[in-house]
């Protein structure tokens, strides 16, 4: 199976869906002639032309809202945000229009829209460019939120998101764009709402989404090698809809849970997961649920400190050891 980058997997998914469905149109800043600020859309303008790959001005509220309107009429816009941090200037369009228009019309309208881009810290760009808004957006009934951790998942989930008839917020990570994974050449789709056990284990469940999944895999190696503890790593992949069954199955097997995310702790995604586990797997738990999030401050610029503001494998190990 070929090894391809996370970036190439996204690029392939876009190209395949543009080819498959004439209503798919890519919109965003620098997506066409510049070939993408992070090169996710590289080569697409040359292949598909300016009707399908459209450069927009720096005007997120305008072009996100435009894409919502176009989706109401049946287009399937895939809007790139150069950073998900920029979504805040388009929040009214995302929350009130994409998120609520179906409901407020009594189900008359569908918004088959994807908004995608990187949502991560750790790249020395300061607080304004390092936001991880998956928890905010998952708080909006009507929106769907996914955060792939690998190239394989990125491709399969993006294809599912483009075919979905609801607005999907697709959170990538600039630190993963250049990483490689095995990705099959034949077409596949990963449905939203299905988590993935990335590593089987028996003593503790490390539950994460996005890049934190990779941190957990490193931590699982350390736990096994240095402490003889078998950790299971569960990747949410899709935050809303959420695959509760896979999470509960894992915790009912291991009886211990460490929840890891690069999001901030207060009302983070893991607050929801923790509530779920205590409600539905209380009797299966042998220890309190542990949480590890980004340290609770705006993203610091200073490069060595920024690295430790995000969850690290040794800290995941510490959290696991505290309950194993």
């Amino acid at each position: 199976m070929p090894l391809i980058t996370y970036r190439k997997a996204l690029n392939d998914a876009l190209a395949e869906e543009i080819t498959r469905d004439e209503n798919v149109v890519i919109l965003g800043e620098e997506v066409a002639e510049y070939n993408g600020a992070y090169k996710v859309t590289e080569g697409l303008l040359a292949r598909f032309g300016p009707k399908r790959i459209v450069d927009t001005p720096i005007s997120e509220a305008g072009f996100v809202g435009m894409a919502v309107g176009a989706s109401m009429l049946g287009l399937r816009p895939v809007v790139e945000l150069m950073f998900w941090s920029f979504a805040f200037v388009a929040f009214d369009q995302i929350v009130n229009n994409a998120g609520c228009v179906r409901y407020m019309s009594g189900g008359q309208i569908r918004c088959p829209l994807v908004i995608r881009g990187p949502a991560n810290g750790g790249t020395n760009v300061g607080a304004t460019h390092s936001h991880t808004p998956e928890n905010f957006l998952a708080n909006v009934p009507g929106l769907k939120v996914v955060a792939p951790a690998t190239a394989y998942d990125a491709k399969g989930l993006l294809k599912a998101a483009i075919r979905d008839n609801d607005p999907v917020m697709f959170m990538e990570n600039t630190l993963l764009y250049g990483e490689k994974w095995e990705v099959p050449e034949e077409e596949y789709i990963i449905p939203l709402g299905v988590a993935d056990v990335k590593r089987e284990g028996s003593a503790v469940s490390l539950i994460a989404h996005g890049r934190a999944v990779l941190t957990c895999l490193q931590a699982a190696d350390i736990l096994q090698a240095e402490h003889g503890i078998s950790a299971e790593v569960v990747d949410l992949r899709s935050i809303r809809p959420l695959d509760e069954e896979t999470l509960l199955r894992s915790v009912r097997k291991t009886h211990r849970a460490v929840l890891v995310e690069e999001n901030k702790p207060f009302c983070g995604v893991d607050a929801q997961i923790a509530a779920l586990l205590q409600e539905k797997a209380f009797d299966d738990l042998d220890a309190p649920i542990q949480r590890l999030s980004a340290l609770d401050a705006p993203a610091i610029y200073s490069p060595p400190l920024e690295k430790i503001q995000l969850p690290t494998a040794p800290r995941v190990v510490q959290k696991a050891l505290a309950i194993c």
Partner: peptide
């Protein structure tokens, strides 16, 4: 809030 929606409807008309 509706002003870019009108734009998007027009965008879809032109696109199609």
């Amino acid at each position: 809030g509706q002003t870019p929606l009108g734009l998007g409807i027009a965008y879809a008309l032109k696109y199609k």
